[in-house]
């Protein structure tokens, strides 16, 4: 099929970017969205132009590296699907497709479609872990965990840290990402001792990074490729309220 693409091109963080149009022919329906961009890039290089830079690695929907705002939707039109798993059969011949980077103050653009998501790492550094130094662990069966809790914790822990939630959120908020981690660790008995300090630390790091606040519109959950739900934000709010009340 034939497509017209409009892609955000920005040479580096300090130079203003703009949308640039490209026409591309003979796109296979079976290609993934990133493979379509690969084909475009091969052509650009052959023409001596700078290829489009974008983040990707596993191309299996698990590493969270790929991003892309496709036609105004984070990871494109297909629900529960990362950009790397989105296939061109979801588009029609002749479509015009806009491709932009995640846009958030906390995720500055590095080049073209590549953004800096280290703010997420800083949130984890501020408490998104359980302190269990190597070698100190009791036997794995010492603490049973009810299956429902383990399953719920897993569902929250499935977050791939892609940042689609931030990109989709009208307020550029990282609450879904943060809530997923708070819920995961807070649902495990091992996570209880640090539950209060964790949430206060993470929230502080989140705000400091420049993410906005949550208005519960649910855009994040709708964009999340791992279908993390708004309940994790509820848990985050609850844990925060209790922790803040205790700290006061």
């Amino acid at each position: 099929m034939k497509l017209s693409l409009r892609i955000w091109r920005q040479p580096d963080a300090d130079t203003p970017g703009k949308m640039v149009s490209y026409e591309i022919d003979d796109v296979s329906e079976d290609a993934s969205f990133l493979e379509m961009l690969d084909v475009l890039n091969e052509r650009l290089i052959a023409e001596g132009e700078d290829p489009v830079a974008f983040d990707h690695d596993c191309r299996e929907g698990i590493c969270g590296a790929c991003s892309l705002m496709i036609d105004g939707q984070a990871h494109g039109p297909q629900a529960a699907t990362t950009t790397c798993q989105l296939h061109m059969r979801k588009f029609k011949d002749g479509d015009q497709i806009d491709v932009e980077p995640w846009r958030a103050g906390a995720f500055p653009v590095i080049k073209d479609l590549v953004v800096d998501r280290t703010a997420f790492d800083r949130i984890i550094q501020a408490g998104g872990y359980i302190s269990a130094p190597t070698g100190t662990a009791p036997d794995a069966h010492a603490v049973p965990v009810p299956k429902q809790d383990a399953d719920a914790a897993f569902s929250a822990a499935a977050c791939i840290g892609c940042g689609a939630c931030v990109a989709a959120c009208p307020n550029g908020s990282g609450m879904l990402f943060m809530g997923a981690k708070v819920a995961h660790l807070g649902l495990m008995p091992q996570g209880q001792p640090e539950r209060h300090t964790r949430v206060l630390g993470m929230v502080a790091a989140h705000d400091e990074a420049g993410f906005g606040g949550c208005t519960n519109t649910g855009e994040c959950a709708a964009a999340c490729p791992k279908e993390i739900g708004l309940d994790v934000i509820g848990r985050l709010n609850r844990d925060f309220r209790k922790a803040a009340a205790r700290a006061a």
Partner: peptide, 14 residues
């Protein structure tokens, strides 16, 4: 396995 469980890895459970 002990180490990972202590870190909060949500392994499948019965």
């Amino acid at each position: 396995i002990d180490q990972c469980v202590a870190q909060g890895v949500p392994f499948a459970r019965e």
